[in-house]
Design a protein around this nucleic acid. Structure first.
Lengths: 249, 249
DNA sequence: TCGTTTGCAATTGTCAGACAATTATCGGTC
DNA sequence: GACCGATAATTGTCTGACAATTGCAAACGA
């Protein structure tokens, strides 16, 4: 591992990058233990707090985990799908909120991606997947469900739909796309009428997937996308901001 | 902002989470300045190094940037697509490499997602997009191009294809999917014959997009996916590891 | 009056040493 | 042999200090 650092630069950043590259390059195997903070400080010729800052940077990226005690230390994290998903959602959420992405753009992106999962979902859906879909549909029909809970169930439904494709990488990508939309979806007020329509479309989707009918599923998804966009019009209307003419040129 | 911390827990992690939630919740506007490290230390009733560790965690997530000097401090980062993309690629790459994701699974995911962009790309492609596609196709036909450069051009081609959909969120997602595949693609040795076939398929894709023929583009993409999978067989054969029976159950 | 320069203050970056908390290991005792 | 305490290693945190950077304003000269 490199022990030379450019002066008049951020040491902890350089150290973090060096270790990160070592991990990505495979020099440090998963679950392998890094030298102790004192050793690293000696290697890089910096103080322990500086090393610690570098380690915290890596910990924030889920690249390492730390453990106290005699056999403790920093260990290379075997990045699981769950943690990576959390990370993806955070980044995606920020990206949408900070760049003032139109509801239309985010919506279009999300449904386009989700539509891509349907053929696979139809081909591979197992009974457990169908059960998950129906469970969420039932929940969405509950009386007195808050808008937030309805949204949460909606997200769960769509994630179950994607999971039916039985491709963890696909599920990971889509989880980011779907969950990042939740703050935007939460701005929508769902009337009883709109809920009923959404639940009906969800039912059509579930049925199509159960029947392994990719075309019908695609059609239902398109309807759902169109209706979601329609509902999203509320948001723009409420904000009363002029619509940018960048969309659908 | 909360100033209470659970004892016997990792302070810096709690502080980072608190500030992170404040940023995600919109309490801290983009480009807004956080209190100085000393002030934060006083607020949370911890020492400055602890606060610094928390800030480094946030900096690692591109949530804040720091600046030295009199008017310096920590500022909420306006997360741009570029930085978010870099982040996404890192996470995706790690996810693929550390979970020993099959080439087939990653490939399937990537092409499924990319296929979802084609209708939009056909609808919105502008002359600049077509020019970018043809430029990469021309580069891929160059004699004496190394495998790595061929791969890089392949990535550039597909990113240009996705960019033609004119949806930045979609481009962001796909950049992660496509670039994360590059290490896997680099394990393939491209013969002159296979290169010619890929270039031909790229040409078909570009022509279909130019003609706004989504069906033809989809067909070309399917062919490309199938052929890439075929080439990927090399990798599994070389590794000589028995294929896990988890795929396509 | 205007432009330049110099000093100051605020802030982050880094260091050194120390102590507390945690945990596995080793040795002793019953 | 089983149980228990001392021990050592390691991370987590604190205190205090100094260096580097940078904006700003006051002082100074033309």
């Amino acid at each position: 591992m490199k022990t030379e650092l450019d002066s008049d630069r951020d040491f902890s950043q350089q150290i973090a990058r060096t270790i990160r590259d070592a991990i990505l390059g495979g020099d440090l195997p998963a679950d392998g233990r890094l030298p102790s903070e004192s050793d690293l400080a000696a290697q890089f010729n910096v103080s322990r707090p500086t090393v610690r800052e570098a380690l915290k940077r890596l910990a924030a990226q889920n690249l390492i985990r730390t453990q106290r005690g005699a056999t403790g230390g920093a260990f290379v994290n075997r990045l699981g799908f769950d943690e990576a998903q959390e990370h993806l959602v955070t980044t995606a959420t920020l990206l949408l909120s900070m760049n003032r992405v139109d509801f239309e753009t985010a919506c279009e992106s999300r449904f386009a991606l989700e539509r891509a999962c349907l053929p696979l979902a139809c081909a591979r859906r197992a009974p457990a997947h169908l059960a998950a879909l129906h469970a969420e549909i039932a929940r969405q029909g509950t009386e007195g469900l808050s808008d937030e809970d309805f949204c949460a169930s909606d997200v769960a439904f769509h994630r179950a739909l994607v999971d039916a494709a039985a491709n963890p990488v696909l599920s990971w990508h889509l989880a980011g796309a779907v969950e990042a939309m939740q703050p935007l979806m939460n701005m929508i007020t769902f009337t009883a009428r709109s809920r009923a329509r959404i639940v009906a479309l969800h039912g059509a989707l579930a049925d199509a997937v159960a029947a392994r009918d990719a075309d019908a599923a695609g059609a239902a998804m398109d309807s759902l996308a169109a209706y979601t966009l329609e509902l999203g019009g509320q948001i723009r209307a409420r904000r009363a901001r002029p619509a940018p003419d960048t969309a659908a040129g």
